[in-house]
Design a protein around this nucleic acid. Sequence first.
DNA 1: AATATAGTGTGTATTTTTTACACTAAGTAA
DNA 2: TTACTTAGTGTAAAAAATACACACTATATT
Lengths: 231, 231
Amino acid sequence: METFLPKFDSVFSIDCVIFGLDEGELKILLIERNEEPFKNWWALPGYIVEQDESIDNAAERILYELTGLRGIYMDQFYTFGDVNRHPQGRVITVAYYAMLRLSGNKELKPVSNYASKAVWISVKDIPKLAFDHEKIFIRGFEKIRNKISYQPIAFELLPEKFTLTQLQNLYEVILNKKLDKRNFRKKMLNYGILKELNEKQKGVSYRAAKLYKFDKRKYAKLFQKELTFGK
Amino acid sequence: METFLPKFDSVFSIDCVIFGLDEGELKILLIERNEEPFKNWWALPGYIVEQDESIDNAAERILYELTGLRGIYMDQFYTFGDVNRHPQGRVITVAYYAMLRLSGNKELKPVSNYASKAVWISVKDIPKLAFDHEKIFIRGFEKIRNKISYQPIAFELLPEKFTLTQLQNLYEVILNKKLDKRNFRKKMLNYGILKELNEKQKGVSYRAAKLYKFDKRKYAKLFQKELTFGK
DNA sequence: AATATAGTGTGTATTTTTTACACTAAGTAA
DNA sequence: TTACTTAGTGTAAAAAATACACACTATATT
């Protein structure tokens, strides 16, 4: 088919803000760039979208190529399109985020040599980043903070079995404030999306806490709280 | 500067979902296309982003060119990037939305002849649309429904001075459900973002209602409700 | 065996928010 | 004057959110 579309020298990319929780510390995934521009700088995992792949697929592929992480489901959260965000031309980037459990220490091994390495870095300790990636990161962090405030989604970051204290710590890290233990438990248990297990924490030198699991089926029924006016 | 960027035959565009309220009826802005593909079809106002303009600026420009509406502030809400969403090539589109008051009957007059006309059409009566614009519209509608559920933003759609009944009707239209009058008023007035005027509705053949204004300053202080756990 | 330690686990009273619900008041039109 | 139509209002009950403190229990230490 003949195309009427103008051909611009412009490029799409994807950038990923991937959150993970490591022993109570919230981290994100960064790569060290192995190409100009910003060679040897830290950056969000991101690359160019191919012409024949959807942006969702591109996101998954790119994350895999740069970090070795496979099949991670991500959500789009914002598209950054300032004219000069890339020094070499017009690049519009669609930013995705995901929250991952780091249990099992997923190995990070870039497949593409566009990245020389990929590492988890604490959100409290983010170095200078290439391009406008700091802006993208901040926006992504706001996104999950906002999301967690409406929907109890923080489970994605925890190991499959977790204690209520771990869950509370996670909330405290993301929301950046202290919460009351009794109220937190009351509310969480009230959601009815936790399943108490007949198991306890192991290897701690104090009273072991009960372990819980996240109940996805029940979660699906909950969801989004609305502005209400009665009746 | 030498560029290392690959040159793809790919294009960005912007599409706009513009809501307006016309005598209690929620409408969106559509254009009739004057170019292939989908010539003579209805579509969301949308066009291609130039290489030297930010996507936010592009959105504003494009909306102006296709509808004559000027200086409308829009927010991005999603980027659509399926491979085959455009029959003639790879086009990724960033969707924007806005909510407008239709008081004063802003005239719609396409400047570019890419659109043969622009009209307001009731959301209950949307025709078949070009490309994947129906999907974009639905997503935009969800976006404002969701937004209005967290933040009392519906004022943007009303004339400067409005009655509480008008405001309630608007909420009912967007949320698609009946609300209780007393509870609605109690809650709205409680937000403290309405300013009661010393004026009444005119030209109605029944008891005239008080008029209110939206108080932007106080609104800025309110904002977003969070998941709480006490203390 | 006793003790120190560190985190677990629990209840209640108060306040605030949400909900359900129905009639009178005011203005217009005939 | 009356009929009509929408505006405007309050309260009681239920549910949710908040503030707040101590005893329990498993382990490690002596």
